[in-house]
Design a protein around this nucleic acid. Structure first.
Lengths: 209, 209, 209, 209
DNA sequence: GATGAATGAGAATTCATTCAT
DNA sequence: CATGAATGAATTCTCATTCAT
């Protein structure tokens, strides 16, 4: 019984991901989502406060999952560099595997005033925290420069990933996102300046068609 | 006299920037914008096809201006590094000086399906082109590493700037955006790896409150 | 219970007949019709696509009824003359009994582009078919001249009835429409030429005030 | 100078006939008519009170012309039968020659509340008077039966012509309207009953394709 | 007279949400 | 818990008309 409810809640959530991704948040009708989930419109309101809550719940539920999985995987790595690479590749792979979710996260979610303004600190902050921890860890173990401005660096990493995924979504998801891991790591690690450090193993490759 | 039309169009555009920034796109009423501009509601439709066109026009008109000004300023610099720093500092300073415009660009504009989906390639692409040209120029003059993946790097730079400004906007614009120029340039230039290159002159400073 | 829907749909339809007749199609507000029917404005759109659909539905629903009833009554008559007279008298009596419906049919309906242009062939055509069948039947049983151009005659009969009812509506429905049956039948039967046939039983009487 | 004005007024009127016929009254924009006439929107209001006045003026101006021409032609005929035939053939030929005008008269004009309700007695009444005079003249000279109900007969004739033309307009004006003159005269003259009178010279022919 | 930019009143329609069953 | 028919608030956009030039 308890599962049945969870089941229905999840079915609605999955339906919403699909409909939001294909129609856009403001063009999606609640009745359409209900139909896709195989329930009556009114039933949606037994599980979610309103349409926006549905959108934000998608973020929270999926992000929670991402946070646990990513943290677990990241922590298994020994040094800062590997940890960062682990995060970058999981970030890119995760979205490549779930295009509807990517569309929701990168496009639709931004159309929610509540999300954009209140920023629903919770799970997103936990993700940023994970990045920050990786950076600090890497500083500690000597992988990264010690004088790095952590908060700013976090933005650089997250901002770049976010921008890269957004661009991929908006370009029609036509190219291989995962293959950008290596080049990105190179940039993160070595910067664009003419330092002496060697490029990453993948070499500097652009993944676009 | 000849300017009257342009004047009215601009007045409506300025009013829209203000209202959109304070109320959000979907909560802004066209009649409100008209009132703020000192014209009748119907007049808005003499100059703009609809409410969304108004939002997108804000982007196009202002972005056009930005593109010319930035390009001109950037081109005066000698080397790639200075050019990039010029762009970064103008980007941050520009938004810090016009908070309403920043809110429109970073938050409201993303709520337009047309903008997010069709991406209104024009002026935004020209901005990305400018970044790309800077990178290529820097590669040519020896400022930057020669094997850089240009397209990806463009995303890194733009994505980071965009994320940094978005975060500033959504945090309430409380801290000094311009002061992030130095640290960002350091990151861009040297990466996070333990290369031999020296940090930027500003030193690694976080600008948050 | 099962009738509730039909009931509500019919209540809206009846309300529309009344409001359209009194205010005219373009001056009637949907909310007014909803109020008259005792439902919310939005409810009208559960049953009808839009305001015009409401108008055309009036025609279709009522005309369907008319077509069945008239056909049944007509078919009970033996000869062509009686059948024609039956149709004429029912046509006139029907409108005299339902002045609001008459106003809708003769005046408001013509204000619908969709009705005037697409002519909603369905039920009107069935009415014209009935007239044509009567004429053909009368030709067969020797009531009418055998060389009659059927299609044209159909227009003469329908056109005359339509014009007579329209004139009655637009004059304020002040005189007795039914009493025109006899004179009309006389004209239809004998024409205006100086044939030898005797006038109808009612004699040649005009019913106007 | 006086002609110039008349010229401009007429140009607007002609433009309105064309636009109304092609777009329908309610879908025609005053600015469109102005454009078609080569004047500014405001100019229309120097010559006509409003959009509806434009439509009704079309009727009045053109009808005035029709009334004079028809009366003159009809009066040249000797007997009632010839007079009626003259009117019928001119009515059909007139509309066949000016399809845009036919569309205005038969379809658009009916969409004017003022026309349908107030019925703009003037010129239409003069047309009905002409028909009545023909009937009365025919009664006097022995062409028609003497006991005819004149008013009703007028409706029969006008109603039939009107319906015949309306049907032609709404069917796409594909067949020859003028060729219906003979058959119609036969019906008017001899009715549909099996009287002894001979059919008209044209014989009973339907003009449809 | 002519213009055409500006006006602003006005209503159809949508769809998230509710609640009686 | 589930339903889905009914609600009704709320806002864009149109376009006939005006009037300063």
């Amino acid at each position: 019984m308890r599962l049945k409810n969870g089941d229905k809640r999840l079915r609605i959530l999955d339906a919403a991901v699909k409909v939001f991704a294909h129609k856009g948040f403001f063009n999606s009708k609640v009745s359409q989502i209900a139909g896709e989930a195989g329930v009556a419109p009114g039933t949606v309101y037994l599980y979610f406060k309103n349409k926006e809550d549905l959108l934000i719940s998608i973020f929270e539920v999926r992000m929670q999952d991402i946070n646990s999985k990513f943290r677990e995987a990241v922590m298994e790595k020994e040094d800062g560099g590997s940890r960062l690479e682990c995060l970058v590749s999981m970030h890119l792979a995760g979205f490549q595997r779930q295009p509807d979710l990517a569309a929701c996260f990168q496009v639709e979610l931004r159309q929610s005033n509540r999300f954009m303004r209140e920023n629903v600190k919770g799970e997103l902050q936990r993700y940023l925290d994970l990045i920050r921890e990786i950076v600090e860890y890497g500083r500690g173990d000597g992988s990264f420069r010690s004088e790095l401005p952590v908060r700013l660096l976090t933005h650089l990493i997250f901002g770049t990933l976010d921008e890269v995924v957004s661009t991929w979504v908006m370009s029609g998801m036509k190219y291989n996102l995962i293959s950008l891991t290596g080049p990105l790591m190179d940039l993160f690690t070595n910067g664009i300046g003419k330092g002496v450090s060697a490029p990453g193993p993948d070499g500097p490759v652009g993944g676009r068609p």
